[in-house]
Design a protein around this nucleic acid. Structure first.
Lengths: 207, 207
DNA sequence: TGGGAGGTAGACCGAACGTTCTCCCTCCTC
DNA sequence: GAGGAGGGAGAACGTTCGGTCTACCTCCCA
């Protein structure tokens, strides 16, 4: 077994295992898929699975880690284009929209995983939180550069639109979802952020 | 066994079973909860479960049906107050925000169920779609009455904000989520809907 | 010329899964 | 007072679950 720069082991069988797990977990969910399915479709034996992963949970975490790397790479690629801040936001949003409209789209891997692992102490849930924290910070920074103020509110607004679009993208016409999402982003860029509430009428009711 | 007006059987044991299933399914997910857990916490025997439900799937569908009734009732109660259309939208939104901020909030029962049942042909998935169709139509009608045009786009925008808020409400500070959501709704009511895109630059990229 | 790493093949474990079954008790109603 | 429905108690069904195990093969490299 060779060892990659990040300390994770690499091998053909391991890659096949992780790719298969990614495909099936994303398409069908996590709890409903057994390791038997995965080793059968990856064409490896049980022993090989447990040679590379401590158990199913480590396979799930690797799946999410791979998804996280993919999204970070996508954002980094857009930033590397050297567009204006607002156009960078637009390009990232278009990338999200393309994902939603692509065949096999099944929602956000992280939102789906969180739905299956609600316990905040569970490693899978924490991996979701970590990814979302990064995404919120990244979005907030981009919108700040694009002149949106307050940037925190704009970033949260952007993430909320994205979450809504990703969640509904496989439950409704993806074209209309993307149209709504991209118009929402455009509105966010144009108005800076949603109007602040009047000081004497808090928008948030007491709990 | 007595029979209710809607054709479903009613009994104390059945109600205990459904309430317990609702509580556990919502809090912990569906696939990860076995019928053993439910019958133990409902303090009934296996025979009683299978006397009232054909199987676990019928219990899941009943759980979603109960949630659907609850939400429809909530909206109906708001509409019965005779507020202006815009204030009706605000009141419904405040109700959503209160739910998000309540203890034990675990996201949208329907989005969570869809994450566990991605197959569009599955009865559980179809129950989710049916609920969402009703909600979209209801929101669109309310926003149309509130003067938002085009109402379709406004309705989709509202549902997208709600989905985003519900999905993130248990993954981030609920207070901030609600603030963002309610500001977004206010912006939607004020501007009618997001700005239409320029005719020569479609917001939706080709697939 | 070894020996370790990676892999295959397949038996096996205990536990949990959803489901069905029999037996018996207690009400309520005709 | 007979009968049926609702429910309790619990054994048992076959299947699948995640995980461990032994045995053997094949490279590659020291």
């Amino acid at each position: 077994m060779t060892t990659g720069t990040d300390g994770t082991s690499t091998s053909e069988a391991r890659a096949r295992l992780l790719d298969t797990a990614t495909r099936i977990f994303y398409a069908e969910g996590i709890h409903s898929v057994g390791v038997d399915r995965i080793i059968a479709e990856a064409q490896v034996t049980r022993a090989t699975l447990y040679r590379h992963f401590k158990g199913k949970e480590e396979l799930i975490l690797s799946y999410l880690q791979q998804a996280d790397h993919g999204i970070r790479g996508q954002v980094a690629a857009v930033r590397a284009q050297g567009l204006s801040a607002a156009d960078t936001v637009r390009a990232v949003s278009r990338g999200i929209a393309e994902g939603i409209q692509s065949s096999g789209f099944r929602g956000c891997a992280f939102l789906n995983a969180a739905a299956e692992y609600p316990d905040p102490a569970h490693p899978v849930h924490q991996a979701v939180l970590a990814h979302r924290q990064w995404f919120l910070e990244t979005a907030t920074r981009l919108l700040e550069d694009a002149g949106c103020a307050p940037a925190d509110a704009a970033g949260r607004h952007f993430v909320m639109l994205r979450d809504g679009a990703m969640a509904a993208g496989c439950l409704f016409d993806p074209t209309l979802i993307c149209e709504t999402f991209l118009r929402g982003v455009e509105g966010l860029l144009n108005t800076g952020t949603a109007a602040a509430p009047e000081p004497d009428s808090p928008v948030v009711p007491p709990a």
